[in-house]
Design a protein around this nucleic acid. Structure first.
Lengths: 328, 328
DNA sequence: TTGTACGCGTTATCAA
DNA sequence: TTGATAACGCGTACAA
């Protein structure tokens, strides 16, 4: 114990926890001892004795690794600043016992808070379990706001609207759309944004130009091939994420289409692949790291019962080489 | 407590920990109660009372997100099977107080074991700290074996040798090589493998064809541009990982080079990008997920003091569309 | 095969 | 402002 090295007994606790009621003199003495012995309060003892576990749970079931990885960077950064740790779990959103899995998880570890990523954030079973365990959570990019629940998101509707409007502004009239995974709220919002932009420009929504994808590269490939096999193919394709857009790029190679001369391709997320494929993707940047940081901050501040908060961050249209005016 | 619901008191502990000395009858009774009350032993109480924390730490400082992400999938899978949890921390390998950071981390959390990824696995400060805290650890793809330390790896030397030999077999004689980050042991092993294959084929090692990269896309881009600007440019380029190989693909676009007709490109890892770029990359598959699983298994088995183990997994040459015989 | 007492390192409560 | 003491929920050692 540092108390021996210092002067007092478990006033150490007060110092470590930055409580008041400590004289500057003893505080200093304790801090020195802490440094000298490189003392660190044991996480388990803390967790056991108090409510505070200093553990943030990141729960995900996401086909896109890059999305989850980017999220983690933000979570880790904030955790480090605040002396928290991140524990990550992958769950199957479709599992019938998702609820009990989540419940086990949080009661087992008495997590300080949980970050729910899509599509988990829209699973009633998960949310119920969290509420039951009285564990604070914040949802990332959920389908719709929920009473008594915090979330952080971008305006997916507007983002997709902006992208579509940009393509229309380029002169495109036949714009294909590859939808995202139907379980993800953001996917639907993006499709609605696309529709709204078409409508606003007086362009018809053409059924055969809207095909279902699932955010995965493979699904993007299939969707892309279907769109490019059309008798009247689109002059531009807007995919709901970058992985699928990259797949469209690959598919267009098979059809011997020059990008962007014969086909414009746009993605969403501005993930790593967007900058790695050739031509680089025009896309919509989602500030994933910042979203993660905001989520952690909300969880930590939540010590006081402030009620649910919502935080909406800005997206950004990133124009690169995969889009251009149609040639015809 | 489930004991009330069941019959006995803390025989629950025995059942939960799968100890012997429990009659089938009581075991069943307890299990039912456990299910009924959805009881979960508290991680903190366990960690405090025993040595076992059921927490595996994954420590990384890796420029490549995809590598870390792939690793996590494997770790998570094994953890789930064994009832462990994964806590991940990102560290700065260059930080002067890396040692104390690692030390804090493990003493704070009494981690059951730690997985050290490159380049952390070759940092004496980190290893010392772990030894000091008497925390078991296994190193992924370290530079060289260490006394008293477990590791899991592939044979990077042979893998690079195989790839180089494949390119030579195709007829290439001027094969550029983009090195990986010098802090990563695997990077050096790969370069040596490349050299050995050249030597074995009686081909000279041409200085200007070997350029330094750092595993990042950007560094691959710069290295690629340098190689392609050469008066006598190589007919093939072998990059130490896929991110850099993808960058070479992009760079070759600027030079108006057709892949693979005018330039063959090979990568390493078989990461997501390898299949997403066009043409898809010929690469060397590293079973990252399996390596991670093996690492966790070693950590968990290590309950008994078996001494250090080494595990070497197989690599696999994956030939795709980015390589072909030279045209000249 | 099962139960009892004790302690793990910290925080919380209440006195001093 | 500080210090004693009792939890926190479990595992371990030993007794029954």
């Amino acid at each position: 114990m540092a108390n021996r090295a210092g002067v007092s007994i478990k006033t150490v606790s007060r110092v470590v926890n930055r409580q008041s009621n400590v004289s500057e003199a003893t505080r200093k003495a304790v801090m020195e001892a802490v440094d000298a012995l490189s003392y660190r309060p044991n996480v388990f003892a803390r967790g056991l004795a108090s409510e505070r576990s200093f553990l943030i749970g990141l729960l995900y079931d996401n086909p896109s690794l890059s999305y989850a990885a980017a999220l983690q960077i933000g979570v880790l950064a904030r955790c480090r600043e605040e002396g928290y740790h991140m524990i990550v779990e992958s769950l199957d959103a479709q599992s019938p016992n998702l609820g009990s899995q989540v419940h086990s998880l949080v009661t087992e570890s008495t997590l300080h808070g949980v970050i729910l990523t899509p599509p988990l954030c829209d699973m009633p079973a998960a949310i119920d379990a969290l509420n039951r365990a009285r564990t604070p959570f914040v949802r990332i990019a959920p389908e719709k706001p929920l009473a008594n629940s915090s979330d952080v998101r971008i305006d997916d509707h507007k983002a997709a609207y902006d992208m579509t409007a940009y393509l229309i502004g380029l002169g495109h009239k036949r714009i294909g759309f590859i939808k995202g995974h139907p379980d993800h709220g953001a996917a639907n919002a993006r499709f609605e944004g696309y529709r709204a932009a078409l409508a606003h420009a007086g362009l018809p929504l053409i059924e055969e130009l809207c095909v279902q994808g699932f955010f995965s590269y493979l699904s993007g490939m299939e969707a892309g091939e279907r769109l490019l096999s059309l008798k009247k193919r689109p002059t531009a394709i807007f995919a709901s994420n970058d992985d699928m857009a990259a797949a469209v790029l690959a598919a267009s190679q098979r059809f011997n289409l020059k990008i962007p001369q014969q086909l414009s391709v746009a993605g969403f997320d501005d993930s790593f692949v967007a900058q790695v494929v050739w031509p680089r993707l025009t896309t919509c940047r989602q500030p994933i790291k910042e979203m993660a940081e905001a989520a952690v901050s909300m969880l930590i501040q939540k010590t006081a019962e402030d009620g649910p908060m919502e935080r909406r961050l800005d997206h950004e249209l990133i124009v690169r080489e995969s889009t251009a005016p149609p040639t015809s």
